[in-house]
Design a protein around this nucleic acid. Structure first.
Lengths: 220, 220
DNA sequence: GCATATTTGTCCGTATGTATA
DNA sequence: CTATACATACGGACAAATATG
């Protein structure tokens, strides 16, 4: 899913970057939390300098926020960010799907993600459903055959996971979309990419609305 | 144009990052060149630690390539990269233009970029024409109203400047496109975004072909 | 508003591992 | 194979900015 350098970490800095990234998307580090250089470098058993290099990378990815002379904080996605992320998602995903070749290798990954989500929903394991859902949408972007676009989408996706961590209600957030994903895939495999794109747009608008509503409730 | 943190550098690290980025897009540092930590940190009069932080950021942006235990090099765009960058450009720019609102504020910036390019062509100052051209296309992406998409496009654009530096023939690369940009803008302002997108696609295909041809010639 | 403590920003020295002439 | 150069990583230091009482 993530084709970043940090998948195969060859230096300590990359290992640490990947580890912190995992903690961020897994919700072990929560939005707004301050990451003290001294404390975190000690708890990870690395030097401050190495940690700072990791901070720069994760800041670039949008997961951390660097405030000069004040420190590094986990990004706090506000409503504007959520709206913006969904705007970018609709832009990228719908276009990728609309122009997709129905026999593209990524379609297989989409199918597998749908199946995985359905299986996890029966357990039920809503966290796994959420993961499968993200794999499905990453596969949609892969249809566009652009590594750079995939990486960009990976950053969007990671930021969105920060939002999910903030809301903490995986079933509510993911359950309704299993069938919608399946329908999108059916359209695509049947050679109706325009219909697939249309369905995806509906999906994303609905998902955005749901998340914004949950976000607003949480805020009060 | 570049809304990055490094526009208003508040720390030495950000200043240095911006400075190296400038040297990269201006061609002062050429693709393939090795950037020695010791040499560069001394010439910039900064510590190696600070330089390494800048290296991580610029690597993330695709301008540098980090080879563990070997060092940091200026990225060498190969043919596959050029093709990929153009694929992403067509994907992003054409979509942004096709769905654009003709009275979007970015349209004004497009118009100004076209005028600037025409003025610079009369001097002639082909470097300035190239810069105006990049502003024009950045403005196209701004039509999509997504800060994250703008940043992503900024990275694509910077990588492309590495390619231009490799080819070193600004007139040949930019001169033919001044009028095409003007035509694209006319379509948009006249409320024909689909025609504008179509013209832009033609532009990008032709530009890619031209650059690949120049790249191939250079290789021999 | 002031004095103090904390934290970041930045530098240096150095030990170790890796790549290459 | 050895030697050399270089990147990796650490720990300590201090100034500057910020937070705290």
């Amino acid at each position: 899913m993530n084709k970043d350098v940090s998948d195969n970490p060859r230096t300590l800095g990359e290992t640490v970057t990947a580890e912190i990234r995992r903690k961020l998307v897994d919700g072990e580090l929560v939005p707004g939390q301050r990451l003290s250089e001294a404390a975190l470098s000690e708890s990870l058993d690395i030097s401050r300098n190495t940690l700072r290099e990791a901070f720069r990378v994760l800041t670039q990815e949008g997961l951390l926020k660097h405030e000069p002379n004040r420190g590094v904080f986990v990004s706090v996605p506000d409503m504007a960010s959520i709206i913006e992320i969904y705007r970018a998602r609709r832009f990228v995903e719908c276009q990728a799907l609309a122009q997709a070749y129905p026999k593209h290798p990524a379609v297989k990954r989409m199918r597998e993600a749908v199946k995985a989500a359905q299986r996890s929903a029966e357990v039920p394991d809503w966290g796994a459903v959420g993961t499968a859902n993200m794999v499905f949408h990453a596969a949609i972007v892969e249809l566009a055959d652009s590594q750079r676009l995939n990486t960009f989408y990976g950053h969007l996706s990671a930021e969105l996971r920060l939002v999910f961590g903030l809301l903490n209600d995986a079933e509510f957030l993911h359950a309704p979309y299993i069938d919608m994903n399946a329908a999108i895939l059916d359209h695509l495999e049947a050679g109706r990419p325009q219909d697939a794109a249309k369905a995806l747009d509906t999906y994303l608008v609905q998902s955005e609305r749901t998340i914004l509503a949950a976000y607003a409730r949480r805020g009060c």
